[in-house]
């Protein structure tokens, strides 16, 4: 596997968009070292910040994470990237395939606009994970995002399709959702605020927005399919889908084709 080893705390935010196994496999170590990653007039290159060891493989390890590493795995389409440490904002932005794993925590907007592949954050995620960045029409767009720790506010804000799993999440989970599925064992107040379509599967939740209406308990085939699908990613979330659930329909203030399944 190829390895990028962080030399030390970056002096500025670094933009690692496009630093993927496929892109690096086409370059020599010297060529890779000249890739610009800085975000100021300092002109930092990949070689300035990382010790580079490439073998042309489809697996890349980034040793030594830092919250200033932005857009790690951005544009990944195949292969794997494993980050040993934390990352900054927009982890896996516009990723289309492959697997991206972060052993630490991620900043805001993780997996925004990601259309495929799987992103796993072992630690916590900042606000609006799977959410839309400012002025963007949509957030997560087909990829799978797994947050094993706690997600911040507005998890999946304006996500369009795909799946997000989180252990816990803050308030406004699934706000303004266009479509897709979010499953979390616990979330804060007002989940699904303004959601048009989409599914929220929740263990515990805070106050519900009054524009959601309870439709009762339903033994729907969809929940069986969802449970089977989740079992590949998280047995705890799959178990949640098999529990007695109460369904709420909403947000009636918008299209009202969304739903919240909450543990009864």
């Amino acid at each position: 596997m190829s390895v990028l080893t962080l030399r030390g705390a970056p002096p500025e935010r670094l933009d690692l968009n496009g630093i993927t196994p496929l892109a690096l496999s086409l370059l020599s170590e010297a060529e890779a070292a000249r890739l610009p990653v800085g975000t100021s007039r300092r002109g930092l290159t990949l070689g300035d910040c990382f010790a580079i060891r490439l073998d042309g493989s489809a697996d890349l390890v980034i040793e030594g994470g830092h919250e200033r590493l932005d857009r790690v795995g951005g544009g990944l389409s195949e292969g794997t990237i494993r980050v040993e440490g934390d990352v900054g904002q927009r982890l896996g932005e516009a990723m289309a395939g492959g697997e991206l794993t972060v052993s630490g925590s991620a900043g805001p907007f993780a997996a925004t606009a990601a259309t495929g592949g799987r992103i796993t954050i072992k630690g916590d995620a900042g606000e609006a994970a799977g959410g839309a960045i400012y002025a963007a029409k949509a957030g997560l767009d087909g990829a799978t995002l797994v947050i094993e720790g706690e997600a911040g506010e507005r998890l999946g804000d304006r996500m369009r399709r795909g799946l997000i799993l989180a252990n816990r999440a803050g308030r406004l989970t699934g706000a303004r959702m266009i479509a897709g599925t979010i499953a979390a064992l616990s979330v804060g107040d007002h989940p699904g605020y303004g959601m048009r379509r989409g599914t929220l599967l929740l263990g515990a939740h805070g106050t519900l927005t009054p524009t959601f209406v309870e439709t009762g308990h339903h033994d729907l085939v969809y929940l069986r399919l969802l449970a089977r699908s989740l079992s590949r990613l998280s047995p705890a979330h799959a178990e949640l889908a098999r529990r007695p659930l109460k369904r709420y329909s909403g947000d009636l203030a918008t299209l009202a084709k969304g739903e919240i399944w909450a543990a009864a």
Partner: peptide, 18 residues
Amino acid sequence: AIAKRVTDAEGKARRYWR
């Protein structure tokens, strides 16, 4: 009706209508 995309046992995404 609602469309949902769910991954099957082989990991393939399948689209269903509810």
